[in-house]
Design a protein around this nucleic acid. Structure first.
Lengths: 219, 219, 219, 219
DNA sequence: TATGAATGAGGTTTCATTCAT
DNA sequence: CATGAATGAAACCTCATTCAT
């Protein structure tokens, strides 16, 4: 069991049961999220975190053996939540029951993930930045996302292909196409242009339209 | 003139005329690119760069006053090259003459930027990672890319809209849609799944198809 | 409030309540005084100070943010003490009561400042050497000494002039004459010829005589 | 023969025959004087000197083996000039012929040394600051000044004592008294209060008066 | 003679981590 | 649990000096 696996288990627990944290520990985590997401993990110092958390320097190391452990405690739990909506047992049934049309599935998924991003953006930003440099995290992310999400998305695509709702083409480029468009929308909203005035509903509908019909006008 | 503006001017010159670099300076830049892209700027040490470059540590600081200046000397010039193909004088004429159909424009652009990415990927990776943390770079990037690319792309979109080739919709979401799809393709190719076996031409065609027609099957 | 002003306040406090220093901090200050006064501030290295203090180099920077702050913490408090004897509320009354004759005033002052110099010579030496190079210190010194000492000395001179004890002449050259003679005596004693055998009492009396009667024999 | 002795010989020659210096060497010396006197020897960098002199970094070391040699080349020659007026063969005869009264001797000496100080103040400032930290310089200064000046001054004092012009007292305190008063005047003029408006002639006369008659009014 | 790239030792400062209280 | 003084390795950077050109 890899380092991260352990952490994921332990730390998801810790994080989900945030009540079990002492007040100081919570302050530390909050301060760390803020500082990591502002300056990047490597450029953040534990002493600055301690200061912002209103805690002695040593206190951080009471709760987290190393600075990296603190990072993982913040970043690892978000990974499971990131894919949560796809990890439900009988996905196909849900599809049939709840999303008769591909558009419906897209609409619900985009809204849901956008809300998630809104609530957790700093942590997501940290995750995005640290994945390339933390091999543990990287490996885990690939297995986790790659296995879980891709499989589910493949199922979704094939489901709607079988229904004749969408084109018959290899699933991988289709998944990539949908994923990058949706992720592009979310990052534009919260990372690139957070200050712009957004009509989110409108943007979501337009994006769904483009995914479904492309640029060429329908006769 | 901001810090980065100066840098852009000076360093593009330096970089374009790489002959004016001493041999050691070139080694330093190469080593820095490699290490920065592997570990991130903040986690890279000048001593490691010196070692990999086969140079004394002091030599780095003879050529670059600070570590950050070294970073900028690497990253700033790439920005102008990134948008180079869009910065040609009479863009509309080029469009009319060379790209009768939107697909043609997309095909050429994607191929060109993919070649560019292949040649400069480590530096692009560094740029992507450091933009959020270097306000100078950030501001410059926004002005540079925002002004230049968005304007040109707006023109392109309106050009093909006027011709009736593509749908009448606000340009911003259309640009975003195209951009994220194309960038998504490129990052998938070189960042996320560089090890996979890619039939690039095929992927490009599929992506263009998806952009143009979306997921819904044509009658 | 200038840098030094802050320092003066804070550091006098710290220095006066030396008990609030940790043992190691005291060692650092002692080592720094010794080394600064032997080699000069700029030529002293923090690593040498740490070594002599028997402390890790990092420890110095836990207590003093910079090397210069360490210098100021040593040198600033001495300035207020340097002028302490002149800064008493009702100076004229003291003069009338305690020093009926100018000679008495000189004798007491010289003895007192000589004792002070004996106790603090290394720090005074550091101060003398760094004033020309630390503008903060310089400015402060001028205001402090210039305002305080010159004013008081002017009062003293005028007091004895009114009593007819000393000549009617502009006070500034008189103050300068007395000051340089006294300072010359003290520096000769502790800086230029510390190794010579001194009959201090005798030298003080001779100096007072010269100040009062000059070189020309009294009829 | 000590390091400094060699230097004194060689460098006085070089310095006196400044024509034998190349233009660049002269620029170096001028720049060094300026920078050393502003920031102190230890805090000045050879590269800054080279820059201000408009010379390549290496050029300094063509002319001076080390930075310290550059310092000595500047500072050593001033020492012989400092005492020049006292080093004439038949001093007593000069006294008898030219200075019938002690006041005359003082007046001429003060004026002469003041002119000298005006012309060479930066170098004198460097000398003052470096003497305590350059044992070579220190030793030399002591022998030089101590032997030469003290001897001559003793002669002077005894000469005027024999004539009954000044009091019978040990010569050492008298010399000290005169020296510190004169040096005090000169340093006040050029070091402590260079910006004040000075009536030099007036100040000189007052100072001579004070040296001769002290503070007590003459009946 | 003059240059300036290169060096490497050493400078100040930061930082994650430990540990006695 | 919490503290914060202490650590020492390592970070970035400076500098006097050398040497090929």
């Amino acid at each position: 069991m890899s380092e991260v696996d352990q952490w994921l288990k332990e730390l998801i627990r810790i994080n989900d049961e945030e009540d079990k944290m002492t007040e100081k520990q919570l302050k530390i985590v909050q301060a760390a999220i803020e500082i990591f997401s502002e300056k990047g993990y490597a450029a953040s110092s534990t002493s600055e975190i301690a200061q912002k958390a209103g805690v002695a320097e040593g206190t951080i190391f009471r709760h987290y053996k190393t600075k990296k452990e603190l990072l993982l405690s913040i970043v690892a739990p978000i990974m499971s939540k990131l894919i949560a909506p796809f990890v439900i047992k009988d996905f196909t049934k849900v599809l049939e029951a709840d999303y008769p049309k591909m558009e419906d599935f897209l609409r619900v998924t985009i809204r849901d993930r956008m809300t998630f991003a809104r609530n957790h953006f700093p942590v997501i930003k940290i995750l995005l930045h640290e994945i390339p440099f933390q091999p543990d995290l990287q490996k885990h992310f690939k297995e986790f996302i790659g296995e879980q999400i891709l499989q589910r998305m493949n199922k979704v695509i094939r489901h709607f292909q079988e229904q004749g709702q969408i084109i018959e083409a290899p699933t991988f480029p289709i998944v990539r196409f949908i994923a990058t468009t949706v992720i592009g929308l979310i990052l534009s909203r919260f990372l690139f242009l957070p200050e712009a005035s957004w009509d989110e509903e409108q943007e979501i509908e337009t994006t769904i339209d483009l995914i479904m019909h492309g640029l060429i006008p329908q006769r």
